[in-house]
Simulated scan of single mutants.
Amino acid sequence: MSPPPVTADAVATAAERLLSARSCGVPCAPVRDLIGRDDVRAAYAVQQLLTGARVAGGGRVVGRKIGLTSAAVQAQLGVSQPDFGVLFDDMRFPDGALVPAGSVLQPRAEAEIAFVLKEDLVEGDLSPAQVRGAIDHAVAAIEICGSRIEDWDISFADTVADNASGGAFVLGQDRMDLGGFAPRDAVMSLRIDGAEVSTGTGADCMGDPLAAVRWLARQAREWGEPLRAGQVILSGALGPMRPVRPGNTVQATVAPLGTVTFTLGTAATPGTPGGAAR
């Protein structure tokens, strides 16, 4: 017997719970008691309410993130399919930034390849060639994942509702176009305070980060918000994500794209201009 449909009131209550956690900086209980563990439509409905609230509050959408692309990360969180979330301008930090402590709840870092689009992905069959041709350049990136849900106690619906556990992101300075560069062959090493804590390759991201972008392009169009020129696309983890604590310096090397670094501040440090507390 299938569960009853999730009501609009339940979706709104789930969104309010997550908004409250974000505003007060205290993680909340999971929202699966309201929307179920695996109701994809209800979960994205919650995410859309959260996106609307951030935009209404002055937030500007600058891209999308793909989550749960790595088998290692799926195993860490007990889920079995990718998801996506929204990137806002106040989530972006420059290479080498001091990211304020508390700006991301329960932070975990993962290394990725980020792509910046030069063309919309709205029309056409969204073939591999079309998607590749729409990309202006690639850069090394670190996503600082964050969960508004206490102890990362998440089902698939919980993380989708919570903007795919998006927190912040840092982009490297070195850009590379796709001529002669095969993202699936990239090699990643993530270090925290100099110690290597995660490794992987481009092939660990859905077989190819470009395949992940194609998946996202199709999903985004289906949900009515297609990808646009100028947007940043975080294509997904190349290896396991790792917890980050105040004072840690995190560096990702994604060969041949280069390196990207940030330091998570302590309560006494103000952070670097260019990103904002959430």
Rank of each mutant, 00 (worst) to 15 (best):
Arg92Trp: 14
Ser127Arg: 15
Gly57Thr: 12
Gly59Cys: 08
Ser70Asp: 10
Leu126Phe: 01
Val116Asn: 11
Ala97Lys: 01
Leu117Tyr: 03
Arg60Leu: 11
Phe84Cys: 13
Val55His: 04
Ile113Gly: 12
Leu68Gln: 03
Glu112Asp: 13
Ala129Tyr: 06
Val86Ile: 15
Ala109Arg: 01
Thr69Ile: 04
Leu105Ser: 02
Ala72Ile: 03
Phe88Val: 08
Val99Ala: 02
Ala72Trp: 08
Ala109Gly: 08
Arg64His: 06
Pro128Arg: 07
Leu126Val: 09
Glu123Gln: 12
Glu123His: 13
Glu110Gln: 15
Val61Phe: 00
Thr51Glu: 14
Ala53Cys: 02
Met91Val: 11
Ala97Phe: 10
Gly59Thr: 06
Val61Met: 05
Glu119Ser: 11
Ser70Gly: 09
Leu121Cys: 05
Asp120Leu: 11
Arg92Lys: 12
Lys65His: 06
Ser127Gln: 12
Ala111Pro: 02
Ala101Gln: 14
Ala129Glu: 14
Gly96Phe: 04
Arg54His: 02
Ala129Gln: 15
Gly57Pro: 04
Ala71Pro: 02
Ala111Phe: 03
Pro107Gly: 01
Gly67Met: 00
Gln74Met: 07
Gln74Ala: 00
Glu123Val: 12
Lys118Asp: 15
Val116Met: 09
Pro94Asp: 14
Ala53Leu: 01
Gly67Glu: 07
Glu123Pro: 09
Leu98Ser: 13
Ala111Asp: 01
Arg92Val: 12
Gly57Cys: 07
Asp125Ile: 13
Lys118Gln: 12
Ile113Ala: 12
Arg64Trp: 03
Ile113Ser: 00
Ile113Val: 15
Glu119Cys: 14
Gln130His: 11
Ser80Gln: 15
Lys65Gly: 02
Ala114Trp: 01
Ile113Leu: 11
Leu117Gly: 03
Ile66His: 08
Ala111Cys: 11
Ser103Val: 04
Ala75Glu: 10
Ile113His: 10
Gly57Ser: 08
Leu121Ala: 07
Leu87Glu: 07
Phe88Arg: 08
Gly52Met: 09
Val122Asp: 11
Lys65Pro: 00
Val61Asp: 05
Leu68Ser: 01
Val99His: 07
Gln130Glu: 15
Phe84Arg: 13
Arg64Tyr: 03
Gly85Asp: 13
Arg64Gln: 10
Arg92Tyr: 12
Leu50Tyr: 02
Asp95Leu: 03
Gly52Val: 00
Arg60Phe: 09
Leu50Phe: 12
Ser80Phe: 09
Asp90Leu: 14
Gly63Ala: 05
Ala53Gln: 12
